[in-house]
Design a protein around this nucleic acid. Structure first.
Lengths: 221, 221
DNA sequence: CGGAACATGGGTGTCGGCACGGATGGACAG
DNA sequence: CTGTCCATCCGTGCCGACACCCATGTTCCG
């Protein structure tokens, strides 16, 4: 319902892989209501272009040199609050999802989704509607959306301090008994914390917890 | 100068990110002499499709579930030596480059290159010419080519191909039964390979194998 | 005050990881 | 030809991971 209904949405596309950028550009330019008017190969370039050009929507990859897509999103939503931001990433990771929302992004799209979904996410972002990425981490996103509907704020950390302590030790390969001995609690309590972590993060076993811990930098590979 | 001069090259495109796949497909299909006739979302699907369909060229991403692009390349160059293989990846990594050549790939293309370069790499592969990706590690590639000219072999790894296959699948969180079904072997054989891996690498359980697989780049965190 | 969130502890049961023992056949080198 | 390496397969048994149920005490907030 903006004044832009007739003019196509002007998009900035930021991804450090030129080939991916070129492909996504073709996908978006094929839509009559969307047009890519700028490309950036890193986060700094994305911020510079979005400041200097007439852009409606920025589509940002997370893993980029100089500045990540999330850092760029924070900067841009400060500088130009009216700019819509879409985070496009390969990481189906609830931590990144929260970071993206806190950074001012109006959508979070996985690279594993189909072309159609990206197009729809762009349109939803322009209409200022949240977009639920099909296939994205459902458990925590549900939790978030439920809270959002009730006007409740985001929890700063989905994972509590105690849980993070257990998470690190589990990811390092320690058994429940070892962890219990170390923290001077019952092994059953360790298992309870671990189960809560699995449920919170929507994961199935220790292996996924380990990869998660590596992703968030809690342990080294 | 083949009999195919008039018919377009039939391409299998394998990448676990549907969005990237869709974009690259648009890039390739825009060329009159190239046509994407099949898409795969993982390495196992890629092998199955390339076996059953009439394919001239397989474009394989390295990081895929179930089987990496390199593992799929090894399998395919055994099964169908006349098939041309192009490895498409974000990793500017000399180790992967060597592995790709040993696996029978005729080209190695970085995702950071422009659309034109991928198209040219496809054409070069079909003409059976090696394609040196602009921007790829040049020094070590020189070293390799020098060695190859002198007929010297590349050093073998301690971990066998089969073991690496099992390693990747174990690290991805699959059970022995799942892996056995996928590779069409007994779950007990999977457990034997896993036990050999644990013994060879001096590790205790799946978690350590997972971290190892991440360190060597076999899977993503 | 009453409820929510957190940390604590328990019981029971299934299933898979892993160790240990064994075997066979094929490929390749010395 | 013989030995070594690899891939294949089997049985037995222990133990830990994980799911599902349950309860208690504290803290903090509306």
């Amino acid at each position: 319902m903006t004044a832009r209904d007739s003019a196509p949405t002007r998009i900035l596309l930021a991804d450090d892989h030129a080939l991916v950028r070129g492909g996504v550009r073709l996908i978006l330019d094929a839509e009559p209501d969307l047009t890519v008017v700028a490309e950036a190969a890193d986060g700094a370039e994305a911020v510079a272009l979005a400041r200097s050009m007439d852009i409606d929507l920025a589509v940002l990859d997370i893993s980029m040199p100089l500045r990540t897509g999330l850092q760029a999103a924070r900067e841009l939503s400060r500088l130009r609050p009216e700019l819509r931001i879409l985070i496009l990433t390969m990481y189906d990771n609830e931590q990144y999802f929260f970071e993206a929302l806190k950074a001012g992004a109006s959508g979070y799209v996985l690279k594993s989704v189909a072309d159609r979904d990206l197009v729809e996410a762009c349109r939803a972002a322009v209409r200022d509607e949240p977009f639920i990425c099909p296939g994205a981490e459902t458990a925590l996103i549900r939790t978030y959306l439920d809270r959002a509907e009730q006007g409740k704020p985001l929890p700063d950390r989905a994972v509590t301090e105690r849980e993070e302590e257990i998470l690190k030790l589990v990811a390092e390969g320690h058994s429940s008994k070892e962890i219990g001995d170390l923290l001077v609690i019952s092994p059953k309590t360790v298992e309870r914390h671990r189960a809560n972590l699995l449920q919170k993060l929507g994961m199935r076993d220790r292996l996924e917890l380990t990869r998660y811990a590596i992703r968030v930098g809690l342990i080294e590979p």
